[in-house]
């Protein structure tokens, strides 16, 4: 493993395999009565969230606590930045506290890379702009393998606002490394140019879902409304929303995934979200194990 986890792009297939294997062991730990292990006792983690987040932050915090680290939380939008401190000075100050990990979420793509170059601590990207959300892709891969046994050759449909989705990007990078067949589905206004990754593009969701093994839905962010990416949420759901009828076009055993939080009735119907095919809650549980594995491996855990 490299020092940092800034993106899936920067990981090898072997790195990813290692994370998934290790996560599997940690998932066993999470099933125990006492869910805490002393693996990273004495290490300090700072959660530096420049963007509001409940789910990812909670998941990281739980992972950190179960590894017995000391946890510091910085919710930055309100504190030092307002006083005019530069990002560089903020992270240098944090480093001076003597932290071992910086978990960073930021609205600007590339911030984790910038920090990683400037600190000795291990940096973990918890989502940067519209670039990557690597731990989400890792937990998605873990959740798929848990049910399907492999990623190789699976038909994975990713549906929605691909252009602005760091979740989609990280998944595309990961899945393409494992030779999954990726289909991007959404309005033409929200499909970026990703030909280099061998993706197939479908504007027609029915066509794109046919025979899919995995249906990965993305969240439509409310700030996209009124900006002409699509005319109305009503029309969006009609053409790109997942309901049971559409889900019926995918394989019978297709998995429904969503990184959350969901907009029920906009990108996914309640029936589809809560159907037996849905692994949305497994994703949440697996997120903790995967994040534990990432931190463990970044400290050189593989050598121990």
């Amino acid at each position: 493993m490299p020092k940092d986890l800034v993106g899936i792009k920067e990981l090898s297939k072997r790195d990813i395999g290692q994370v998934l294997d290790t996560a599997s062991s940690f998932k066993d730990v999470l099933r125990r009565d006492i869910k805490k292990v002393p693996a990273l006792r004495g290490k300090t983690v700072v959660n530096l969230f420049f963007e509001p987040s409940t789910r990812t932050k909670t998941s990281f915090e739980l992972a950190e606590k179960r590894l017995s680290t000391d946890v510091l939380n910085f919710s930055v939008p309100t504190s030092s930045v307002v006083k005019g401190e530069s990002l560089f000075d903020t992270i240098k100050t944090i480093e001076a506290y003597g932290v071992d990990f910086i978990v960073i979420r930021h609205a600007s793509s590339g911030v984790p890379h910038f920090i990683a170059e400037n600190v000795n601590a291990s940096v973990i990207n918890a989502g940067d702009g519209t670039n990557e959300h690597p731990t989400q892709a890792l937990l998605d891969a873990f959740s798929i393998i848990e049910k399907k046994g492999t990623l190789e050759g699976l038909n994975v449909a990713i549906v929605g606002d691909i252009a602005h989705s760091r979740v989609a990007k990280s998944n595309i990078y990961l899945l393409s490394k494992f030779n999954a067949r990726i289909r991007l589905i959404g309005p033409p206004t929200l499909i970026p140019c990703m030909e280099d990754y061998g993706v197939e593009v479908f504007y027609d969701m029915d066509e794109g879902l046919r025979g899919a093994d995995i249906v990965m839905m993305l969240r439509i962010q409310m700030e996209r409304q009124g900006r002409s990416f699509f005319p109305s949420t009503q029309e969006y759901f009609k053409y790109w929303g997942l309901d049971m009828k559409r889900l019926g076009l995918a394989r019978k055993d297709a998995l429904v995934m969503h990184p959350g939080p969901m907009n029920r009735g906009i990108e996914i119907s309640s029936q589809a979200a809560d159907s037996p095919q849905s692994v949305i809650l497994d994703q949440v549980t697996n997120g903790i194990a995967v994040r534990m594995a990432v931190m463990y491996l970044l400290t050189g855990g593989e050598k121990q």
Partner: peptide
């Protein structure tokens, strides 16, 4: 200012 419901 904003695209209309072309699909519908």
């Amino acid at each position: 200012e904003e695209i209309a419901e072309m699909g519908l």
